[in-house]
Design a protein around this nucleic acid. Structure first.
Lengths: 172, 172
DNA sequence: TCAATACATGTCAATATGAACATGTCCAGG
DNA sequence: CCTGGACATGTTCATATTGACATGTATTGA
């Protein structure tokens, strides 16, 4: 389970509330690790009980911002450096491709058109995001450089999938 | 939830038991949609109750092979043609990249080396599988052609990730 | 013949995930 | 003033997923 480490990692950048983290998951991590607010609030409580994070400040409307502890940093670093990567790539697009033979040629062509459009569009967005980071629009912090690498990975993967859909349309 | 449709889809190729399906998930679908046998047996029972599959034959050691029904075919086709694709790509490799800044340069370099090796190796395997299919080693059925397309997608995505890891090693 | 291995199905408990419901606060604009 | 929208946190229920445990059968090779 990577959610806890992702939360600690995000808090290592800066203190944030459950609400903040929910939005960051929506924006940044939603496409690779979705998490709704019920899961996030629950996990934050557990992390606090375990001493990996602590309350940083309390704000208006019951807002509670958390901050990472030394133990939390150690834990996320242990995860990054000592825990084997789970290389499962859970992707419905790919799962469906195993069952393309159950679609008519027309249905398949329409499906591949939609997929190609989606992936090429996403790839373009990610390339633009990467270019903006290269232009320095987000500064040059270590965190930004990591996000730059993540954007590059996303751009390459979605480009590959868009190209694949184009290829599949013309495949034997 | 795609598990039920994946099970129906696999049964549409040929009747199979829970055991058979567990192995096919391990072999073929495990890297894009993992499922352990408890989940599979449970889902088969539900699918049978709903009339989407039925028992085809019973064999030694309590083996029960299922076969898809017309309703099952209709349901998987409905999924393929009418249900929006969930484009979430759940991938721990990519999630971790957002937190690379928490690793030392040496740790990161070692990590990227391992990732590059893993993805390039997997890409090579998938390309060889695709080539074997192109040589006709698995026949030329519609199902084989779909698996050929799936292998192509896997090869392109893993190649892109391997290339990305190489790129990231030299990134600013 | 006996033991190891592969076959085959299942339950149970714990955890993860997602959708819906519930509650209340702050702030901006009419 | 008051109302709608964004902020903020939670619970509850249903379902999905994983890992551990449990049971027993057929086959193969020593």
């Amino acid at each position: 389970m990577s959610l806890r480490h992702a939360l600690i990692g995000l808090l290592a950048e800066q203190p944030a509330s459950g609400w903040d983290l929910t939005r960051r998951f929506d924006d940044v991590l939603g496409s690779v690790w979705p998490a709704g607010h019920p899961q996030i609030y629950g996990e934050l409580r557990k992390l606090q009980e375990e001493g990996l994070i602590e309350v940083d400040s309390e704000g208006p409307r019951g807002r509670k911002a958390y901050r990472v502890t030394d133990a939390g940093i150690a834990e996320v670093r242990r995860w990054l450096t000592s825990v084997d990567v789970d290389h499962t790539i859970r992707m419905e697009s790919l799962l469906r491709s195993v069952f393309f033979w159950l679609m008519s040629p027309e249905e398949l062509a329409a499906h591949l058109d939609r997929e190609a459009e989606y992936f090429h569009g996403l790839a373009a967005n990610l390339r633009e995001l990467a270019a903006a980071k290269d232009r320095g629009e987000f500064g040059y912090s270590q965190q930004t450089r990591s996000l730059r690498m993540a954007a590059e990975a996303g751009a390459r993967v979605t480009q590959a999938l868009g190209d694949w859909a184009d290829w599949a349309k013309t495949a034997p």
